[in-house]
Amino acid sequence: MSQSNTFTLDGKTIPYSEGQTIIQAAMAAGEYIPHLCFNPEFKPHGSCKLCTVKANGRQTASCTQHPAPDMVVESDTKEINDERRTLLQMLFVEGNHFCPSCEKSGNCQLQATAYQLNMMSPHFDQFFPDRPLDASHPDYLLDFNRCILCSLCVRASRDVDGKNVFALSGRGIKSHLIVNAKSGRLADTNFSGDDKAAHVCPVGVILKKRVGFAIPIGSRSFDEQPISATPHPQGACPVGPRSNAATLPPHPTVKDA
């Protein structure tokens, strides 16, 4: 009887335990599957579809799909990587991603995943949406232009911080992030830099003020190693608790938008 608790990922045998999804088991085994809305610290969400794999011949999101014994999972194939690249291009044209002026550049999972998958252009026509930013908070800035609607901040604020600072509103292509304030401004919420939600954004939306571009080009998270070789990027926040942001001299406050 084959009672193996293993599946194969691109031919490699991956052990898994009850309750693990494909990506969780793969990560535990040191294997990289591209992903954006998945963060090992949170319950899988399954919305970005970057983690799509072929499991026994059928495409499925590996962050939510549970493996079965001896399941054959294909991930790093041309077909799937082409699809992932197209999904990335969709995310790029849907928002406004001008990396040269983005503080997250070099530490951004969207960007690093696009490098990983050789995305040379956004391919589609840009949507150029109009998304004003929110600079109301004294210490944090929200640049909605880069939001990929991954819901990590929503989950972190609700499930870890117990605050519900963030939520999604709208529907379809008009989906957007909102904050928990009548004014619609972050300054009028109980958001704090100590919140988990302040440090989970995989892209450059939730940014600490006055510390941008602190890490020189060349030593940012994904400069040295591609994302596939960077263990558990976990929303690698350049201005999060792990950075030396606190030691930087304060700059004059940016004028509120």
Partner: peptide, 18 residues
């Protein structure tokens, strides 16, 4: 379909607009 896409997943949210 574009109008009714719920917007949860990338392929349908953006793809129906494209």
């Amino acid at each position: 379909f574009k109008h009714e896409s719920c917007g949860f997943c990338t392929p349908c949210r953006v793809g129906t607009s494209l």
